[in-house]
Deep mutational scan, measured.
Amino acid sequence: MPSETPQAEVGPTGCPHRSGPHSAKGSLEKGSPEDKEAKEPLWIRPDAPSRCTWQLGRPASESPHHHTAPAKSPKILPDILKKIGDTPMVRINKIGKKFGLKCELLAKCEFFNAGGSVKDRISLRMIEDAERDGTLKPGDTIIEPTSGNTGIGLALAAAVRGYRCIIVMPEKMSSEKVDVLRALGAEIVRTPTNARFDSPESHVGVAWRLKNEIPNSHILDQYRNASNPLAHYDTTADEILQQCDGKLDMLVASVGTGGTITGIARKLKEKCPGCRIIGVDPEGSILAEPEELNQTEQTTYEVEGIGYDFIPTVLDRTVVDKWFKSNDEEAFTFARMLIAQEGLLCGGSAGSTVAVAVKAAQELQEGQRCVVILPDSVRNYMTKFLSDRWMLQKGFLKEEDLTEKKPWWWHLRVQELGLSAPLTVLPTITCGHTIEILREKGFDQAPVVDEAGVILGMVTLGNMLSSLLAGKVQPSDQVGKVIYKQFKQIRLTDTLGRLSHILEMDHFALVV
C-alpha cells in the first residue's frame, strides 16, 4: 500500500459497493488471473465517493441489488447463522422517566444476534452475496479491517462455511474481542490505534497488504460494500417497522461504517417519512454534520465500534436529520445504567446512543415513540467499562463513588512517597548505550525526554532486548525507535489509591 493515498477510480455505471474482489474501477472485475494482476490496485480507499443510485421515491424494481426479506425461524435451526436477525424490541421503562421523557422509549437489542452484535447481519450478508456472485469459493481466505464486531461476525460465518479468516484490528480494541476471535479460529493482526486510516500501518493498510500477498484472499470491505446497508434496509428496518406496527417518530443510532443508519433510515424514509433520524458520533470522530460539531482538541476516545477519521463510502449522511456528539463518560455511564436499571447487557456504544436519545427525544410528546439501536453486548468489555477499576483509572468514576473498604494508605498523596527525580535518556542515544546505562543503574525503564525536557515516551529494558533479539533494531539504532509513546501519567497530588489502580493494569506510571 502506498504512503500517498491515490484516488480510487470510478467506473461508468453500476453501484460502487459490489461485493467481491475490487477492480481499479471499484466494481467486480472478471477475466484471467493475468488481467486481474495487471488491473487490481494495491488498495482502494474506504472513503471513495459513493456511486449508489438510491433515491427517495425511486421504484424498488430499479435497484441493481439482490434483495432479501426477513424469514421466520424454524423450530430447529440448521446452523447458528440462522440465529442472525429477528432481534427483540424491548421497552426501556426507567431511564426515559428518569430523564423526563414523555414518549415511549424502545430498544432494538442487536446483541441477541448469534455473534453478539449488529455486525453479524452485514457479515453474513457480505459472505452470502460474495458466494452468490462467485467471488468467494471453498478454501478462500477472508481478510477484514475491523474494530472487532464485524470480525467476530465474519469469523463466526467463516467457521460454519469453512473459510480461512484473518482479522486486522487496532490495538485499542478489547482483549475479549481478541479472545472470541481466536476461539472462532480467526487469525488476528493488531495495528497502532493512532495510525491514520490511509497510513500503511493502519488496520485498513495492513489488511490490503495481506490481501496482495495471500492468494485467493478477499477483503469484503464493510466500508464500501453495498451488502452492509442492504442488510439493514432489507431486514433490520423491516423488523423495526413490523415490531412497531409502522408507528415510530424517531430513530437514534450510533454511527461507525454508517451501514446501520443508512440502511434503516432509507427504508424508514420510504415507509415512515415523518420519522426523524438521529445520528450519534463520538467526540474525536469526524462523521457528524455540520462540520463545526467535529471541532475539538480530542483525537482519541475509548468507546469502541463507532466514529472514524474518514467518511466511509457506505455512509449516506443525507438521510440523517440531526447529529449529536457523545463523550466517553456519558457513554459508559449510560451503558452501566442500562445494565443495572433495565437488565440490558449492552456495550458502550449503546450507552452513547441512549445518552443522546434522552436529549433528542425531549421534543417528542406522549403517545409518540423513539427507537434506539443497541449494537453489541457487554461480553466484549468485561475488563473495560464493566470494571470499576478501569473506570477509575480512566477518570470516568471517582473514588467516592465506590463504597468498598480501602487499605490505610489509600488516600495518601503520591508526594508522600518522597520520590527522587528519575533517570532520563535522550532519544538520540543508541539502544546499546541505553541498555548499558539501565543495567549500570539497576533500572528496568526510563523516560525519554528531548533537550527541552519534554517527555516523549518510555523505554524499557525488556522491550529493547526483545527488539534486538527479533532483529527489529540494532544496538547502533537510536533509542527513539523503541519508545512507548502511550503511558499513564500521575500527579504528586493524586492518591496512592489512584496509582494502585493504574499499576494493576500497566507496568509503570510516570509522575509529573
Rank of each mutant, 00 (worst) to 15 (best):
P2G: 13
T5C: 08
T5E: 09
T5W: 07
Q7P: 15
Q7S: 05
E9N: 10
G20I: 15
H22Q: 09
S23Q: 10
A24N: 10
G26Q: 05
E29G: 13
E34M: 09
A38C: 15
K39G: 04
W43I: 07
I44H: 10
D47K: 05
Q55F: 03
L56A: 11
G57Q: 08
P59F: 01
A60K: 11
S61L: 08
A71S: 13
K72T: 04
K72G: 10
K72Q: 11
K75E: 05
D79G: 11
I84W: 07
D86V: 13
T87A: 13
T87N: 06
M89F: 08
V90A: 04
I92M: 12
N93M: 05
N93F: 02
G96H: 08
F99H: 10
A107N: 03
C109A: 10
F111D: 03
N113K: 05
G116P: 07
G116K: 07
K119T: 04
R121Y: 01
I122R: 00
R125C: 08
I127L: 11
D129F: 06
L136W: 05
K137N: 12
I143S: 01
I143G: 03
S147K: 03
G148I: 00
I152Y: 01
G153R: 03
A158P: 02
R164I: 03
K177Y: 00
D179R: 05
D179F: 01
V180K: 01
L181Y: 04
R182T: 09
A186C: 04
A186V: 09
I188Q: 04
I188L: 09
V189Y: 08
T191A: 01
P192R: 12
N194W: 10
D198M: 06
S199E: 05
P200N: 08
V206N: 02
R209M: 08
E213K: 12
P215R: 02
N216G: 04
I219H: 03
L220T: 02
R224H: 12
N225G: 01
S227E: 10
Y233H: 09
Y233I: 00
C244R: 05
D245Q: 12
K247S: 01
M250G: 01
A253D: 09
A253T: 14
G259V: 01
G259Y: 00
G259S: 01
T260E: 00
L268E: 00
L268M: 06
E270C: 05
P273A: 05
